[in-house]
Write a protein that binds this DNA or RNA. Structure first.
Lengths: 196, 196
DNA sequence: ACTAGACTAAACAGATCGGTATACCCGTCC
DNA sequence: GGACGGGTATACCGATCTGTTTAGTCTAGT
């Protein structure tokens, strides 16, 4: 019922994989549990025994997506050489974002898309979405502090806004290289804050 | 069938109003035509005679929302006194955005939300969404040119990204004053471009 | 050998989906 | 006064929605 990401049964694993692909690719409300079960090679009974409800499955999908994104982002940031200036780590978040978009985010941020489809404040997925954005802002703020900028809170807000703006424009194919634009603006913000 | 905004039948007018409120408030896929017809005090027959299909109704909803936004934005920008520096007109777009969000965009950009729900590239609404973003970028670019900045295209990209970033963060309630953050960054970008 | 857990197969609710059909009412314009 | 357009009311279509039920199989651990 709880279905933590660790220790999923094989069938539950396939359900979550199928759900992730379908929810992200077609939208949450446009995908029924029958289709998910079929794609996973699983009966609805199993799906409901493992996840309890569609709502909970949606939340599990977002939770795992969040975990993957955090792991990817921190790993990419930690690749920058220790000798490099700490501001490079901030810029690395934009390079990580660009690669992430190319690889698994062509339709824009899964969390923003989910929020668009789930207006009900009581939906369990809303909590996951809020956590995701809060974590990212906290992470950016920490990087700013490490770079010894004057006002880390303000800069973190700006960087978060640049991340989100780039992601949504990427999904809309409205401009050629939204992440490049964001990175350029982030660099200027860092310079202004005396971090580079 | 085409249902242009001008010259709508009284019943069609009520249908479009009801559809706008429901589509924006609950999401497009979560709202059925039966509910829209009921809310409008209209039969489904009338709805289908006026709009032809749900797809077309969705497109009409977005088209009208776009018209309202354009009218609002240009009117607000044109309020800035003619004697003021042209860069003020660029900043005025952020003040207009802030007021718009407060008044009728609490759930974020209706176009971004719609795009999240309509992955099918052939959906008639996709065209409306693309047009909306293209128009906004063109408008921002024109304001930049009027302000005699060095690279109006680059600046327009940046401003568009700030608009979108602010809108999505507003919808997620992730930071306190996203439009304020955007406006602040826009001002710096204008200064750097020599427009102020 | 027994059992608990993970699973399949298939039918069944009751509601709602987008869309269509039939039949009728009423005001306006010619 | 007759045609016509805009509208109502109601029923229907097949498909799909989330979720449940009954019945039974297979496998791993003790």
């Amino acid at each position: 019922m709880q279905a933590r990401t660790e220790a999923l049964t094989p069938a539950a694993r396939r359900v979550l994989d199928a759900a992730a692909e379908l929810f992200y690719g077609r939208g949450i409300n446009a995908v029924g549990v029958d289709l998910i079960a079929k794609r996973a090679g699983v009966t609805k009974k199993t799906l409901y025994e493992r996840f309890g409800s569609k709502e909970a499955l949606v939340a599990a999908y977002l939770r795992e997506r969040d975990e993957r994104w955090r792991a990817w982002l921190t790993a990419e940031v930690d690749k920058s050489p220790p000798a490099a200036p700490p501001a490079d780590r901030v810029l690395a978040t934009f390079d990580a974002l660009a690669a992430w978009m190319r690889r698994e985010n062509p339709r824009g941020c899964g969390f923003v898309n989910a929020a668009a489809e789930l207006p009900d404040a009581g939906h369990p997925a809303r909590q996951v979405i809020a956590d995701q954005k809060r974590w990212l802002r906290g992470y950016l703020r920490q990087l700013c502090e490490d770079a010894d900028v004057a006002a880390p809170d303000e800069l973190a807000d700006e960087l978060l806004l640049l991340h989100e703006g780039a992601t949504v424009l990427y999904g809309l194919s409205a401009v050629a290289d939204p992440v490049g634009i964001s990175r350029r603006m982030a660099l200027r913000a860092l310079e202004r804050a005396g971090a580079v």
